[in-house]
Design a protein around this nucleic acid. Sequence first.
DNA 1: TTCAGCCAAATTGTTGACAATTTTGTGCAC
DNA 2: GTGCACAAAATTGTCAACAATTTGGCTGAA
Lengths: 238, 238
Amino acid sequence: MPWLTHTAKNDVVAQICDRIWLAVVQRTLRPGARLKEEELAEIFGVTRARVRQALVLLEQDGLVSLVPNRGACIAEPSVEEAQDAFSARLLIEQRLVARLCARVTDAQLDQLRDHIARERSAHEMGDSEAVIRLSGEFHMLIARMTEAELLFKILRTLTIRTSLITAMYQTQATQTCGPDEHARILAAIAARDEARACAEMTHHLNHLESALRLSESDRPVSELREALLGAGQRAKTG
Amino acid sequence: MPWLTHTAKNDVVAQICDRIWLAVVQRTLRPGARLKEEELAEIFGVTRARVRQALVLLEQDGLVSLVPNRGACIAEPSVEEAQDAFSARLLIEQRLVARLCARVTDAQLDQLRDHIARERSAHEMGDSEAVIRLSGEFHMLIARMTEAELLFKILRTLTIRTSLITAMYQTQATQTCGPDEHARILAAIAARDEARACAEMTHHLNHLESALRLSESDRPVSELREALLGAGQRAKTG
DNA sequence: TTCAGCCAAATTGTTGACAATTTTGTGCAC
DNA sequence: GTGCACAAAATTGTCAACAATTTGGCTGAA
């Protein structure tokens, strides 16, 4: 079910990746959390070798940072990295949505409509896990429909990155983007209006980013320095 | 020295990756070539585990295809995949070069000039290995200078892909792009002319792609079917 | 008290042997 | 001679024990 899955098969390693990713976006696993191989191995009922493979894959996706001889932990993307990720994602998704406008079929439009309906349903039922999953899946669905395999792959890793970033920098205000903006994107695609679709996608991603604490003024106290120097010092450095 | 290197450290695995990549771009290892783990392990004087790690990384970069229980071989990107790769690379590099125009320093310009000089030198001396390496490095240098870490990473894997594609589909006519087009790109960057820099980069990449046998009419006879049916049959199928 | 040095515990990295799978080769029936 | 079944070889996948590295605490001297 999860869309993150690396290989299509019933791969144990891919399942481990998915579970870790899910724990991160659900904020069960906080950024910086230590990931001990043996512990994970026991949790998932596999050997350490499998866990190790999963960690390597997750590092490639930027979800965990892997330091030689010192183990793995959930990555802590900086504000700059966060902005980079959104910037890259915008570039890719603009291209994807434009491309889809030119080639989308009616069947695909129905599929997208169906997906948004499911998003709405999950939203109303308050199933936050489904909301998160489906929300990401919408973007991946568009990517897959464009049949640009490479951009699809790139977007997959970028989505993983932004998932982590969202989990890390999110405010109480906006947990996830509602399905409404997705609907607007879909409408533009259905109208085969490239410019509008691009604009809606841009708006959507900018909205997503702006709902995070990425400004200088109110960063989260995740960084040790900031946290320990306290508010008094921050005025000086800023 | 090689710019492909995955991790900055003196990582044995990264070296294996580089050696394999180099063998591919030098056409010593042809697409489709079988990569037996034990064989590689013996060649590089390492254990199979290391080779395995390298193969996983190379698969992520699209240089080798890895089939469960059936081993690894040099990937054989289809024409569609080749076009996708160039298309994606164009998208990324346009962005990168535009971004660099806005932030390039004089020192960086000197560095680029110096690089092109080395390209020229290698070109004149007929050192084809250096030409290939430096040619790729020029693009990576631009990417690094923009300080967009993510786009840099993405471009790295795209460059690996296009290296393979070039090796696979290249004609006798153009082995590699000469340093002249790089010089034109640099000139546009030096003039801080975003539009022109983009255009030059676009021209350069299109030139690179158009020098390959990517058209329907004359595909390489890499596929077994094509190769063994012979020219007589090809007329029928085409 | 403080800090360098050192030892012990915990954790990661590596290896080689073993299991599972696929491929290749052989023989038998038809 | 052809096709199928079965066995043997080659190759990949997995594992658990062992080695190397780091971390934290302890001791003892300045």
